[in-house]
C-alpha cells in the first residue's frame, strides 16, 4: 500500500499538491517547490506535459522526488503514447517504486506548444485504468503473461462543475469499474455545487479529493471562467481579488474559507498550485489541516 493509499484508507483528510517538471533538464526549481510541500502533504502529483506543453517527463520527475523522500503521484496521459509505450511506462513506474498513478486522457495537442504533433489517444482514461489493472493481474492488454506483476494505486479525475453533471457521474462510475481507486477533482469554488456533486459521487464509494487551483489574480479567475471547462469562479471571489492590494493574502483567505466549507463533504484536498507551492504551508495551517 502506498502512503497515499494508507491515508485514504484510514479515513484521514488527505492532502496532495502538484508540481510541474521543467521545460528542460534543470530540475532545481521543481525540487525547491517540492520542498515547500515536505511534511505538509501526503503526496505530490507530477503533471505529464501539462496543457500539451513538452517538458521533462513525469516518470523521471517522480523518481527524483521519491529519491528526495517525497511520495509521488505519477500523472499519465494517453495523448502521446500508444498502448505499448503506456504499458511499458506503467511497468517502469512500478519497478522504480512509483505506484500512485493518476490516469488521464490529457489535453488535445492543438492546445499546446507542438500543435503539429500527432495526437495519439489510442487509449483513453477509462481504458488506461483497465490496462493498469490488468497489468496488476499479471497479464498485458494483449493477454500475454508478465514476469513479475506491478503494483499500483490508481487514481482518476472528475469535473464536478460539468454540465450535465449526470454524464460526469456516469463516466466516473465507468472509471471505477475500470479500476479507479481514488479521484482528484477539477477545481471547484462553489460549495453548493460540490455538495450536489458529492451526493451523487459518495454512493460510488471511492474517496474524492477536492481540487483547487490557487487564484493569483482577478484576471486569472476571469480567464479560467472563460477558458477552463467545468470551472466557475464566483463573482464574490473575483471582486475580492480585484479590490485587494495583497493578492497572496487575499487568495489564501479565500481558499481557506472555501476549504472550511467543503472539507466535511469529501475525503481530501488536491491543490493545483501553478508555481505557488510556497504558499501551501500557510494555507493548510490556516485551514487547520495537519497531516
Amino acid at each position: 500500500m502506498t502512503l497515499l493509499q494508507q491515508a485514504l484508507a484510514k479515513g484521514e483528510f488527505t492532502v496532495t499538491a502538484e508540481v510541474a517538471p521543467p521545460k528542460g533538464t534543470d530540475t532545481s526549481e521543481m525540487m525547491e517547490n517540492a520542498e515547500f510541500l515536505r511534511d505538509k502533504v501526503h503526496a505530490v502529483n507530477v503533471t505529464d506535459q501539462q496543457s500539451s506543453v513538452m517538458r521533462l517527463g513525469s516518470l523521471a520527475s517522480c523518481r527524483l522526488l521519491k529519491e528526495a523522500g517525497f511520495e509521488p503521484v505519477f500523472q499519465l496521459t494517453t495523448r502521446d503514447r500508444n498502448r505499448i509505450a503506456l504499458q511499458s511506462d506503467l511497468l517502469s513506474a512500478s519497478a522504480l517504486g512509483i505506484e500512485n498513478v493518476l490516469c488521464l486522457t490529457g489535453d488535445h495537442v492543438s492546445l499546446g506548444d507542438h500543435p503539429q504533433a500527432k495526437p495519439v489517444f489510442e487509449l483513453d482514461s477509462v481504458s488506461l485504468l483497465m490496462t493498469a489493472k490488468r497489468l496488476q493481474g499479471g497479464v498485458d492488454l494483449a493477454g500475454n503473461e508478465l514476469e513479475g506483476k506491478p503494483t499500483f494505486h490508481l487514481g482518476a479525475v472528475v469535473t464536478p462543475g460539468y454540465e450535465p453533471m449526470e454524464l460526469q457521474l456516469l463516466k466516473m462510475e465507468r472509471k471505477i469499474k475500470a479500476g479507479a481507486q481514488f479521484f482528484q477533482t477539477q477545481a471547484v469554488y462553489d460549495p453548493e455545487l460540490f455538495r450536489r456533486f458529492m451526493e451523487g459521487a459518495s454512493d460510488l464509494g471511492v474517496p474524492v479529493m477536492l481540487g483547487f487551483v490557487l487564484l493569483k489574480s482577478a484576471g486569472m479567475a476571469r480567464y479560467m471562467n472563460k477558458n477552463v471547462a467545468g470551472v466557475s469562479v464566483p463573482d464574490w471571489i473575483i471582486d475580492e481579488m480585484k479590490k485587494t492590494d495583497d493578492k497572496v493574502a487575499t487568495s489564501i483567505k479565500i481558499v481557506v474559507r472555501i476549504i472550511r466549507q467543503m472539507r466535511e463533504m469529501c475525503q481530501g484536498l488536491h491543490l493545483m498550485t501553478l508555481g505557488w507551492e510556497r504558499h501551501v504551508p500557510a494555507i493548510l495551517q490556516e485551514a487547520g489541516i495537519n497531516i
Binding site: 482514461s125 481504458s127 469535473t159 454540465e163 460526469q168 463516466k171 471547462a229
Partner: peptide, 20 residues
C-alpha cells in the same frame, strides 16, 4: 470527438461545446 474517446466524454466541454 477530436480525441476519439470511446468510453465517454473528457471533462472539457463548455456550454455543450467541444474544448478543442
Amino acid at each position: 470527438c477530436p480525441k476519439g474517446l470511446l468510453n465517454g466524454p473528457c471533462g472539457g466541454a463548455k456550454d455543450g461545446k467541444c474544448e478543442v
